[in-house]
């Protein structure tokens, strides 16, 4: 464990909590892509199947349970509890365009052709594109509430910190996980456009982010 990975996990946790609290307190999921949240729940489900078979550390197990619980709670709030505030008419990204290539690639490129390893690889590739429906929804509506942009900031920051973690681990323990690194770089690149808007618009105190 190093400071970059810890900061990354904390940033990820903060992002998930920001979103969950926003939906819970405003009793609305307007402007939130339910599809992205379902994809994230799928990412955690397929990645943490080793929750009961492999024990890494208390921290690892606790965080896996927390991420699974919070992501399913978020999906529940969107599709069940506050479903009448869900903007399904704006959440129209075709997720099959993400799932098919990701499934194909995880069968082609993986560390071992075993169910657990292929599902882990699937979760890594899926996470890189899971935010697409949310970013698409924002471009479609042309705006995002500032709290939603803070959620996206911490979500994008988490994988950027993981890249620093991978550089650190390569230099200190000559460890590298190529699938995770390539996918993590792609994932972070997808956030760059948002980061630019975030720093130039939201942090200028302009409340919600309106796209040009």
């Amino acid at each position: 464990m190093n400071v970059f990975r810890l900061a990354g996990d904390v940033s990820h946790l903060v992002a998930i909590i920001i979103l969950l609290l926003k939906i819970w307190r405003s009793k609305s999921c307007a402007g939130i892509s339910g599809k992205s949240q379902v994809l994230f729940a799928l990412v955690f489900t397929t990645r943490y199947l080793d929750l009961f078979t492999v024990f890494i550390s208390v921290y690892n197990t606790v965080m896996k349970v927390v991420f699974l619980a919070l992501s399913y709670a978020t999906v529940y709030l969107i599709y069940m509890r506050f479903r009448n505030s869900y903007n399904s008419e704006n959440d129209t990204f075709r997720v099959e365009f993400l799932l098919v290539p990701v499934i194909g690639l995880s069968f082609l490129e993986n560390y071992a052709f075993t169910p657990l390893e292929i599902l882990w690889t699937f979760s890594i590739f899926l996470e890189a594109v899971a935010i697409m429906p949310q970013l698409f929804m924002i471009t479609k509506t042309g705006e995002a509430e500032s709290i939603t942009t803070h959620y996206l900031f911490f979500l994008g920051l988490y994988r950027a910190l993981y890249i620093a973690n991978w550089v650190w681990r390569y230099h200190t323990e000559s460890f590298y996980d190529l699938i995770a690194i390539v996918s993590g770089v792609v994932q972070t690149i997808f956030f760059c456009d948002f980061f630019y808007l975030y720093f130039t618009r939201v942090l200028r105190g302009r409340g919600k982010m309106t796209l040009p």
Binding site: R5, D9, H12, R47, D50, V54, I56, N60, M63, K64, F67, Y111, W120, Y162, N165, F175, Y176, D177, L178, I179, A180
Partner: peptide, 10 residues
């Protein structure tokens, strides 16, 4: 090995 047998990252 270069890749993680048991993936120790979240």
């Amino acid at each position: 090995a270069d890749e993680a047998e048991a993936h120790d990252e979240l």
